[in-house]
Design a protein around this nucleic acid. Structure first.
Lengths: 170, 170
DNA sequence: CATTTTATGTCAGCCTTGTTGACATTGCCA
DNA sequence: TGGCAATGTCAACAAGGCTGACATAAAATG
C-alpha cells in the first residue's frame, strides 16, 4: 500500500525532501497555487463572457502564430468538437482569424486579430504580473528549481511540446 | 530544458529571470505540469464515476479529519451547492461519514470511512509517485525553489490556509 | 424570551467545457 | 480514382461550476 517514506524513513536523512509529508505539501501547493495562477485572467474573461478554454486558445494562438487546428488540439489535449466551439465564438467575435493553408489547403492557420492581440495582452499582463512578483520574491535560484520540478512532472509528450514551444515558438 | 536561465543574477545586472520570455515559460510550465499532476488520479476516479471535485473533497477530508463543511468550503473555494452535490454522493457511497458536532450541533464533522481511506490512499499514491519522481529528478534545492515560487503565487488567504494546513493539519 | 444569525441542506435552473458518435466537405496522395 | 487526412458541424450527454430561493435547527444576542 502506501509504502512511502514516512513509516521507516530514518535510513535516508539525505532524502528528507521525499517524505510523504513533503510530497503532500507539494501536492497542496500545486492546488492552491494553480487557483491563484488562474484567478486574475478569470476575472477579465468573465467580463467578456469567456472562460478558461478561450484563454488557452488565445494564449497558444498568440504564441504560435499561424498554428493549425490540429496542432492546437494536440497542445490543448481536448476534442476537436470542444475546441471548435470555443474557436467558433472567437472567430465570430473577431478575435481570431482562420486562413486556409497555402501549402495544404485542408489546413486552417489561426491568427489573432488586432482585437485578439489586445485581449491576449490584457490576459498575459495580469498573469505575468503575478508570476513576476512570485519570481521576484522567490529569487532566480528558486525559479530555476520551480521550472525543473514542473518539467519533471509533465507527461513526456507534453514535455516535448513545452520544450518545442519554448525553443522554436511552434 | 532549464538551460540555466538565470545566468548571474548579479544585482545591478539584468534580472534576466524576470524577462517576459521567462515568465511565459513559467506560465506554460504551470499549464502543462498541472495536466500531468492531475492525470493519474483522474484515471482512477474515472473507473469509479467520480471527478476531480470528489478527489479534492476526499483529499482535504482525509487531511483534516473531522473538518466542518464550512471549513471545507473555504479551502475549496466553491459554493455549498457545488460541494454538497459531491459530498452527498460520497456519503451515499459510504466513503465519507458526516457526524453532528458535539460542541455545536449545527456543524457536521466529516470523516473518511474505511473505504474512503482506501480510495484516498490509492489516489494519493499515484499522485505522490509522480511528485516523488519529479522531486527526485530535480533534487532538494529545486524542490525548495518550487515550493517558494508556488507559495508566492497563491492568494494571501489561500497561502494562510496552506500554511495552516501544513503546520497544524487543520 | 424573542429575534437574529449561523451552519447546513436542498430544489431548480443556467452556463461552460469536456465527452462520444455520426456525418459532410475538401483536398492531398498513392 | 479511391483512400486517408484535416476540418467543421449537429446532437446528446455529463461534470461541476454558478445563482437564487427556501427550510431547518441551533447558537448567539439583545
Amino acid at each position: 500500500m502506501s509504502e512511502g517514506s514516512s513509516g521507516g524513513g530514518q535510513r535516508g536523512e539525505t532524502l528528507l525532501y521525499l517524505t510523504d509529508e513533503q510530497l503532500r505539501k507539494g501536492i497542496e501547493a500545486m492546488f492552491f497555487a494553480y487557483k491563484g495562477f488562474t484567478s486574475d485572467p478569470d476575472r477579465i474573461l468573465e467580463t467578456r463572457g469567456y472562460g478558461r478554454a478561450h484563454h488557452r486558445a488565445i494564449h497558444f494562438i498568440g504564441r504560435a502564430h499561424g498554428t493549425t487546428v490540429n496542432n492546437l488540439l494536440a497542445i490543448l489535449g481536448v476534442t476537436k468538437q470542444s475546441l471548435n466551439r470555443v474557436l467558433r465564438t472567437l472567430i465570430e467575435d473577431g478575435l481570431v482569424e482562420s486562413r486556409v493553408g497555402t501549402r495544404d489547403k485542408r489546413e486552417r492557420h489561426l491568427f489573432l486579430t488586432e482585437e485578439g492581440e489586445t485581449l491576449e495582452r490584457a490576459l498575459s499582463e495580469v498573469q505575468q504580473a503575478r508570476m513576476r512578483e512570485a519570481f521576484r520574491i522567490a529569487g532566480p535560484g528558486a525559479v530555476a528549481g520551480f521550472r525543473e520540478v514542473l518539467e519533471a512532472m509533465m507527461d513526456p509528450e507534453m514535455r516535448r511540446r513545452y520544450q518545442r514551444l519554448a525553443e522554436t515558438g511552434q
